[in-house]
Every structure is written in C-alpha cells, then in structure tokens.
Amino acid sequence: MAFVQEEFSILHREPGWINGKQKVARLLHQAGTEVQEIYENIKDEQVVGTTDYEKCIKRLDSYFEPDVNINYERQKFRNIKKAMEQFIVKLRKQAISCDFKEKEDAIKDQVIERCTDITLKLKYFKKGKDLTLNKIMEISRLYEMEKVVSNQNLKKEEKDKEQESVNRISNVECYRCGRRGHFAKSAECNAANEI
C-alpha cells in the first residue's frame, strides 16, 4: 500500500489542486477494486485524522501494516550473533520491533549477557552507571585492537624463539666429523657413513 500511496502523493503534490474527498476517490480508484472493498469494510470511528485523505490513509495503513509478534521479535533479538559493532547495529535494528520501553538498556543488557570474554565483560562492569552503547563500542574496539597487537607480539616472540633454537643447532659441533650445524646422528654428517 505504501507504494501506491507514494505514487499517488507524487501525482498530487500541488496544494489545493484537488480537495480531500477527490484525493480519496482518486487514490481508491488507482489502488483498485480489492483495496476499495477493504477500505469500505474498515470502521471509520477508530481512525484519527484532520482530512478525509489522512483518515483514508490511516484506515488502509491499519489494515496493511503487518501484526508484529513481540515475543518472536524479542527471541530474534536474543539470538543475534555477530562481531561487536555489527552485533550492536543488528540489535538496534531488531529492537525497533520488540516494543522495549528502554531500547538502549535492553541492547546494553544483551551485549553484556552475550559477551563471552570475561576480561571484556569486566571492562564493561568497571564503567558502572557511565556505560553507554557508544562506550561499549569504544571499549570493544580498543580491546579488539589490544588483542590483535598482543597476538602479533606473541607470534613475533614464538618466531624469535624458533630462530634462537635454529641458531643453537647451527652452533653445535658434531663430535664425529668436527663440523658445525648438525648432530652426529644427522644424515648431514659425512663421518656417520664411514663407520
């Protein structure tokens, strides 16, 4: 219905061009007989509007807007799994359908509840009353960067240790042949084949 309404409003943008009843008649004509039947069967007393056209649109909107199952929407809200920023964006989008009184608090609670990293969760708790969604995203971003840098440092340390052990082997002197860089049992040792 919104598509027909948009087309219709583009057609009749000029104010005062036609009156409200004429707009209603044209809209219903353009929408077709099925919409006309629906319009006639919707009670007019429940609709609030200043003009006949506004009342018509509200009557049709009340029919065509899908019913939202709040419980189902909240279940979807509880089961969202994404990276932190994507997670919050997805939660904000889903929270619109959930009819929460305090959307931001519901989102914060969900983020904290779903956080599996204890260190990150403790960082959220340390903020106490000052914790907002923006702070959650900031803390999460910084924490992710810290983890990346920490992982890079660990990899560098592992590589350094590996290089150090290689260096130790290259300094070892074979007791059979007297050369450096291998052990006596190694296939590289020429003296092993002579015995």
Results as ranks from 00 to 15, higher is better:
residue 5 Q to H: 12
residue 6 E to G: 06
residue 8 F to H: 14
residue 8 F to K: 06
residue 9 S to L: 13
residue 11 L to W: 06
residue 12 H to N: 15
residue 13 R to E: 13
residue 17 W to K: 09
residue 17 W to L: 11
residue 17 W to S: 11
residue 18 I to M: 08
residue 18 I to H: 07
residue 20 G to T: 02
residue 21 K to N: 05
residue 23 K to L: 14
residue 25 A to P: 01
residue 28 L to K: 04
residue 31 A to V: 02
residue 34 E to H: 12
residue 34 E to D: 14
residue 34 E to R: 12
residue 36 Q to W: 08
residue 36 Q to P: 01
residue 39 Y to C: 01
residue 39 Y to V: 04
residue 40 E to N: 06
residue 40 E to F: 06
residue 40 E to T: 10
residue 44 D to P: 04
residue 47 V to M: 15
residue 47 V to A: 14
residue 48 V to P: 01
residue 49 G to T: 13
residue 53 Y to Q: 13
residue 54 E to W: 11
residue 59 R to F: 09
residue 60 L to M: 10
residue 61 D to H: 13
residue 65 E to K: 14
residue 75 Q to M: 12
residue 75 Q to V: 08
residue 76 K to C: 06
residue 77 F to T: 05
residue 78 R to A: 04
residue 78 R to W: 03
residue 78 R to F: 07
residue 79 N to A: 01
residue 81 K to E: 14
residue 82 K to D: 14
residue 82 K to I: 00
residue 84 M to D: 06
residue 88 I to M: 08
residue 89 V to I: 11
residue 89 V to Q: 03
residue 89 V to N: 02
residue 90 K to C: 00
residue 90 K to V: 00
residue 91 L to C: 05
residue 94 Q to M: 07
residue 94 Q to R: 08
residue 98 C to H: 02
residue 99 D to P: 02
residue 99 D to G: 03
residue 100 F to V: 03
residue 104 E to Y: 05
residue 104 E to W: 06
residue 108 K to G: 04
residue 108 K to T: 11
residue 108 K to P: 01
residue 108 K to V: 13
residue 109 D to R: 12
residue 110 Q to Y: 00
residue 111 V to G: 06
residue 121 K to P: 00
residue 121 K to N: 10
residue 124 Y to I: 09
residue 124 Y to K: 03
residue 127 K to Q: 11
residue 127 K to F: 01
residue 129 K to V: 14
residue 132 T to V: 13
residue 132 T to A: 01
residue 132 T to C: 07
residue 133 L to F: 02
residue 136 I to Y: 04
residue 141 R to E: 12
residue 141 R to T: 12
residue 141 R to H: 09
residue 142 L to Q: 13
residue 144 E to T: 14
residue 147 K to V: 06
residue 149 V to L: 15
residue 153 N to I: 14
residue 154 L to G: 04
residue 155 K to R: 06
residue 156 K to G: 03
residue 158 E to K: 06
residue 159 K to Y: 04
residue 159 K to V: 05
residue 160 D to E: 10
residue 160 D to P: 00
residue 164 E to Y: 09
residue 164 E to V: 05
residue 166 V to F: 11
residue 166 V to Y: 11
residue 168 R to I: 13
residue 170 S to M: 15
residue 172 V to P: 02
residue 173 E to I: 15
residue 174 C to S: 07
residue 174 C to N: 04
residue 181 G to P: 12
residue 185 K to G: 11
residue 190 N to G: 10
residue 191 A to W: 02
residue 191 A to E: 15
residue 191 A to F: 05
residue 193 N to K: 15
residue 195 I to E: 10
residue 195 I to Y: 05
